[in-house]
């Protein structure tokens, strides 16, 4: 292990190197005062450096332990088990759930894109409501964070969808437990709205700030199970000249969101707009923010019009087949397409 891998400031690193400390082991037997004298720095600063270095050393020792070969790693077998036991967030459209393997999966970042009016926000609101379906009904019983960058979140619509969801739950209850006492955890539509934390973001700086702050927020509200950003694109498409900066900021944001999804076992859903791209001599629709962003999300779903019907297409996923399914936006929210005789079409 070398000094250059330590998370300390550049000047401290420079001082260490010029004083001849190149490896971690050379620091291990030093006292803070000795190091302070050598580097001509204050004793507290020297203590900080030694602390960082010993932490690193400790990590190394742990790595050699018998349990895990690499610290923080997980075996594929454990992951499979975890994946099978994890509950996905239903979309309320069984055809869509089928191609998604049961719904939007937690621990992953899912990007949903499509033309204006295709139903991105509708799907997002539906997910914010569905994440709250109690465990008794096969749901997650969690809460939702809705980060609105476009101002397109409609509370009235959320209430309608929540009402429909509560209604469905009642029906399900009466079907399944006719002779039993009514199930606990029946929810009022307004309760659903109370569990949606709504952030209205007006600049890209605020967007970054919210994402940075989420870790602390979710730590305080542990039952948040979905984070929705509607849309990730808006502030980065308008009045944004420095493309290099844009790519960097978006990349950083994607990493933080992925980390968040893993750490708190929650689903991250990002909505994206579309743009036209010149390819093979003609213009074609594609999701916005460019090719480097396309790598950022784990799953990518494109919503599109096929004639007069709405379809969802899995464009990218490490575990799902690319397939498309029709859905419709109804008064109750996202539902199966009415004129759906062909069921799911696998490509």
């Amino acid at each position: 292990m070398e000094i250059s891998t330590l998370p300390i400031s550049a000047s401290q690193r420079g001082k260490l190197l010029s004083a001849g400390y190149t490896s971690l082991s050379s620091l291990s037997s030093l006292s803070p005062s000795g190091l302070a004298q050598d580097l001509k720095i204050s004793e507290t600063e020297a203590l900080e450096i030694l602390k960082v270095a010993s932490q690193r050393n400790g990590l190394n020792k742990f790595e050699n332990g018998s349990r895990a070969i690499v610290n923080g790693a997980q075996t594929a077998w454990d992951m499979l088990h975890e994946e099978e036991s994890s509950i996905r967030i239903t979309t309320s459209c069984s055809d869509l759930d089928e191609i998604l393997g049961g719904g939007i999966s937690p621990k992953e970042v899912t990007e949903i894109g499509g033309v204006p009016g295709i139903g991105k926000t509708q799907l997002a609101i539906q997910l914010a409501v569905n994440v709250q379906i109690p465990a008794d009904y096969g749901g997650l019983g969690g809460k939702a964070i809705y980060i609105d960058t476009e101002g397109s979140f409609m509370v009235e619509r959320a209430l309608q969808i929540a009402e429909a969801c509560a209604q469905d739950m009642l029906e399900y209850n009466s079907l399944l437990r006719k002779n039993f006492k009514p199930c606990q955890g029946n929810k009022e539509p307004k309760e659903f709205l109370d569990n949606i934390f709504y952030f209205r973001v007006c600049t890209y700086t605020e967007q970054i700030a919210v994402i940075n702050y989420l870790e602390k927020f979710i730590f305080e509200h542990k039952d948040v199970k979905v984070v929705i950003i509607d849309s990730i694109t808006f502030h980065f498409r308008q009045d944004f000249e420095d493309m290099a900066l844009r790519t960097r900021l978006l990349g950083g944001m994607a990493l933080k969101l992925m980390k968040l999804a893993k750490k708190f076992n929650l689903a991250v859903v990002l909505l994206n707009q579309v743009t036209t791209k010149f390819m093979d001599g003609s213009f074609q629709l594609t999701l916005a923010l460019g090719d480097s962003w396309a790598h950022a999300s784990t799953n990518r779903i494109i919503l599109y019009w096929n004639g007069n019907e709405r379809y969802a297409y899995i464009d990218k996923s490490p575990s799902l087949r690319s397939a498309s399914a029709s859905y419709s936006v109804t008064g109750k929210g996202i539902r199966n397409s009415a004129s759906n005789c062909k069921r799911v079409k696998l490509m």
């Binding site: 109370d194 949606i196 709504y198 209205r200 970054i208 919210v210 702050y213 602390k216």
Partner: peptide, 14 residues
């Protein structure tokens, strides 16, 4: 970030 972050509301309070 915590300072620059806009305040949140629940959908119900909106």
């Amino acid at each position: 970030s915590e300072f620059a972050c806009p305040p949140y509301q629940t959908a119900l309070s909106v």
